[in-house]
Amino acid sequence: MSEPLLEVSNLTLDYNLGGRKMRALDRINFTLEKGEVLGVAGESGCGKSTLGLAILRLLPRVAEIRRGAVFFKGTDLLKLSEEQMELEIRGQEITMIFQNPQNALNPVFKIETQMTDILRVQDRNQNPGSRKRHQHYRKQAIERLKLTGIADPEARVSNYPFEFSGGMKQRVMIGMALSSGTSLLLADEATTALDVTIEAQINKLIIDLAAEYGISVLYVTHNLGVLAEMADKIMIMYAGRIFEMGEKEMLFGSPRHPYSAALLESLPSRQKKGRRLLSIPGFVPPLDRLPKGCSFHPRCVFAEDICRKQVPPLTEVASGHWSACLLDQKRGRQKWQWT
């Protein structure tokens, strides 16, 4: 068996805010194979964005990694020096696209300048001492724009960001993100700010490019529908923990965790007009005041005594299907009927 591209093991991370300690990631374990698309979903504050930032070690200073390792191609990224991360990993092997392309591009520089800068850095990191002309990188930039489906790239490369629409800017970001050596793409709500028809275009672009170059994708979003169309595997997070993980068909078809079942029940697309949507009682607990036991128990209508005492471990409930619920054994194949 070949080793996975990315293996996150037991990753635990705290935010220290003025004496308050918030556990943003708690014993995160998963693997990502080459060419696989893993979708990460959950409500605000569940830690899904922190996970992406932790892999790239782009965390704010208040964050502290307590335990765990992030093995990328067999190397623990958490053990690399800052310089190695910068030279070998960030923007080279692992790249990231963010939610708001508007903020990710500098408004006072042309697309050409911003793209050639990155290409030059990438080139010099890979081949130290390389002294190529600007024209060389400019040509590469045009090729990248063409690859991401921007019409008339020769002319557009000299435009400023404000001359591009939101969807086009996200295309530029993708073009910048994909260097020749990229093997992992982290996408954090990459299409949330876009219209549906543009969102469909961009997601297709990500999937097509990933398939063509054998790139693995960690796709973070709160939109379960997008994941249903893009991802191979899905991970559902809640309050810093993985609650359920598995193949898309299994997870959406027969969710094993009551929280995943509830999320699916609260989508208008699954409900007939006039029937009430499920609204999960209560709210997501603040991370410094997590309830004892299972962090979901105060909102879970199925909770029993044991849920208030024990923290449910993430266990493999079927082949390739993981769930963190203490009642799973007892429940067997019975569905979580919230309503």
Partner: peptide, 13 residues
Amino acid sequence: RALISAVPQVDTD
């Protein structure tokens, strides 16, 4: 038609 088809759906079946 395009707008409706572009809406991501959870039920992929």
